[in-house]
């Protein structure tokens, strides 16, 4: 038996919003420690990893490990039927071929349940090594979204260049060149408005705008986003899911052939 109840159901709605453009189907791996998902986009350029810890749920029961393969477009359609303040429960029997989503209004006066077929997905799992990144940049998630959106007008790629002074995002194309520089904030009233840089060495890497734009669909999840970079390894774009987990996107850099 698997059952996970989340009073803050809108977190789950937001997680789905942040995945559905990148992935069409994926497996949710459930264990007594929580729920995890790891999947690559169709072209195998990027990887998404989601963690929802058991202690972040209001009720969590997972008697035996199970992998629930789901069509994320269908899951997203179902979660869109939940109101933002609904309590969401996900339930499945052991070795079941379907999953049930229960949405309760906060006053318990409306209860809806939706059943969805599970899929057998044969998915590759990649081992992500622990890495000490050369540069770790934290900035407001909405600012990052805006920068990527603005620079996507100029070209297909964004160059992210990090030094001690700050971080520079650049794009070039037929209409011209765009550069956006963010300095580390000296002092801010609100922590979520800060730009902070932890740097071991300067790094400059080039990434495809198309994917960065899809990653920023997770902006609704968290006030801040963390970018971790090292020379010639994938960028990590991380959004926290409340205090229960994270969505991490990994994107391979563009490298000289």
């Amino acid at each position: 038996m698997f059952e996970a109840r989340l009073v803050q159901g809108n977190l789950l709605k937001k997680v789905l919003e942040s995945l559905k453009d990148l992935l069409t189907e994926a497996s949710w791996d459930c264990a007594d420690t929580g729920i995890q998902l790891q999947a690559m986009d169709n072209s195998h350029v990027s990887l998404v990893s989601v963690q929802l810890r058991a202690d972040g749920f209001d009720k969590f029961r997972c008697d035996r490990q199970l992998s629930m393969g789901m069509n994320l477009t269908s899951m997203s359609k179902i979660l869109r039927c939940a109101a933002n303040d609904d309590i969401i429960t996900i339930k499945a029997q052991d070795q079941a071929d379907n999953v049930t989503f229960v949405f309760e209004s906060p006053n318990q006066e409306k209860v809806a349940d939706y059943e969805m077929k599970l899929m057998n997905l044969d998915q590759e799992h990649l081992g992500i090594p622990e890495t000490d990144y050369a540069a770790v940049i934290k900035l407001p998630a909405a600012e990052f979204q805006r920068i990527i959106k603005d620079l996507s007008q100029f070209g297909e790629s964004v160059v992210i260049s990090c030094t001690k002074e700050g971080v520079k995002f650049s794009a070039a194309g037929d209409i011209g060149v765009g550069n956006i520089k963010l300095a580390q904030t000296a002092s801010v009233d609100k922590e979520e408005e800060a730009v902070t840089i932890e740097m071991q060495e300067p790094v400059t890497l080039t990434f495809a705008c198309r994917y960065l734009n899809m990653f920023t669909k997770a902006t609704c999840l968290a006030p801040q986003v963390t970018l971790s970079m090292s020379p010639e390894v994938p960028l990590v774009v991380e959004y926290k899911i409340g205090d229960m987990g994270h969505v991490r996107y990994y994107l391979a850099p563009k490298i000289e052939d």
């Binding site: 690559m40 081992g127 992500i128 390894v233 391979a252 000289e256």
Partner: peptide, 14 residues
């Protein structure tokens, strides 16, 4: 010219 590498080139299969 810069080329997009697949993520599978950076992470090993488990």
């Amino acid at each position: 010219e810069q080329a997009q590498k697949p993520i599978t080139q950076f992470f090993s299969q488990q």
